[in-house]
Simulated assay, not measured.
Amino acid sequence: MSREIHSASRIIIATPRAIFRAHIDPEVLVKWRPPHGMEARLHEFSARPGGGYRMELTCADGGGKGKSTANSDIVRVRFAELIPDDRIVEEAAFESDDPANAGTMTLTTILAPVTGGTKVTVTAENVPASISEEDHRSGMESSLRNLALLLE
């Protein structure tokens, strides 16, 4: 099984504080985190180090190939680090019987102030073998685009 590192970044015209808050507000998180073509629903949420959430990502058109069900991914996320306005470290595991989806992926989001906004860089480590680098990067870029559209 390959355990890769994938990353994506984007400059968002918003403060690090606004971007950080978008990660820890459940009503806002479900609006931007799902990549294009997916919808999200939270089943639980606790915004504190050691807390986390359980999110179901469903293909909006009912099609697709899910990791947890025929057309959905269910992921359990633990906040390993929450450093306000600076860094968010999430440990994410898919609910799946397929060994290619097994393991805990670590998502590190770095918020770096730049002129006119914030550079947001997301790095995913220990990516499950079932997720190609191209698909994952596309999904992360889609989520960052959604976040920019929401906050800008």
Rank of each mutant, 00 (worst) to 15 (best):
D61P: 06
A102D: 00
G50N: 01
E90Y: 01
F94V: 07
E91H: 12
C59G: 11
P84R: 10
E81H: 14
V77Y: 01
S96Y: 04
L82P: 12
L82K: 04
V75W: 00
P84S: 13
A100F: 00
A60N: 14
T106F: 04
T104E: 12
I88H: 03
P99R: 08
P49K: 10
E81V: 15
R78L: 02
A92N: 08
Y53I: 09
K67P: 03
D73N: 15
E56F: 15
F79N: 05
A102S: 10
E91F: 01
F79G: 07
D73Y: 15
T69A: 11
L57D: 07
I83A: 11
A60F: 12
I74Q: 13
G64L: 09
N71D: 00
A70C: 01
G52Q: 08
F94G: 04
E81S: 12
G103H: 09
C59Y: 15
D97F: 01
E95H: 04
P84H: 11
G52T: 02
P99K: 05
C59S: 14
L82R: 11
V75A: 05
M55F: 05
R78M: 06
K65H: 00
D85P: 11
S72I: 08
A70H: 02
L57H: 12
L107C: 04
V75S: 03
T69I: 03
L57N: 13
D98S: 08
R78N: 06
R87K: 12
I83T: 14
F94R: 02
P84D: 09
I88C: 07
A93E: 15
E56Q: 15
L57A: 10
E91V: 05
G103P: 04
G50P: 07
T58C: 11
D97R: 10
R76E: 09
F94N: 13
C59Q: 14
P84Q: 03
T104Q: 09
N101P: 00
L57K: 15
T106Y: 03
L82C: 11
E90P: 00
G50I: 01
I83H: 13
E95D: 09
S68M: 11
G52A: 05
